[in-house]
């Protein structure tokens, strides 16, 4: 079986309804959030789990600070800004001998916890800061 088949089988066994968004991307819902599952035909072992949070303001600087904070403090989950969204991602190589349900469920938990943290920080940032400009001093604080 391929990584994609193993992961999809594990997701179904864990009680997820998977929806194919394109050939290599599937959507699942967890705690009310849409998580994206991505595979790569050219890299058979690859599996990535993503959450996309729209930012809405191209000029806003604070998502960059927030992403940096996540990257500095969280294991496994990385964050980055791409155009009008903040992305959280957990990507890894999967192996044939994985305990697929255990591994996949842990990946989902890691991303979901990061999502909850980011949403909280997002609300706090949005409420307090309208125009944060990245400077040496606030980068050091972050």
């Amino acid at each position: 079986m391929t990584t994609k088949e193993h992961v999809l089988e594990a997701l179904h066994a864990l009680g997820f309804e998977t929806k194919m968004l394109d050939g290599d991307t599937y959507g699942i819902h967890y705690e009310g959030d849409l998580l994206l599952c991505r595979f790569n035909e050219e890299d058979a072992g690859f599996f990535g789990l993503y959450y996309c949070m729209p930012i809405g303001d191209e000029e806003a600087q604070w998502p960059v600070l927030l992403a940096n904070q996540i990257n500095a403090s969280r294991n496994y989950v990385k964050a980055y800004r791409s155009e009008l969204a903040l992305w959280l991602a957990y990507e890894r190589e999967m192996f044939e001998k994985e305990e697929w349900q255990v591994t996949v469920s842990r990946m989902i938990e890691f991303v979901s916890t990061a999502v909850a943290d980011v949403k909280q920080a997002f609300l706090e940032c949005a409420a307090q800061v309208e125009n944060v400009h990245v400077t040496d001093s606030n980068l050091q604080e972050a």
């Binding site: 864990l14 009680g15 997820f16 819902h29 967890y30 469920s105 989902i108």
Partner: peptide, 15 residues
Amino acid sequence: QTDEDGVLHFMFQMK
């Protein structure tokens, strides 16, 4: 599925 006590259960989004 039904467990040894006869309780019907199933997995739903890891719960």
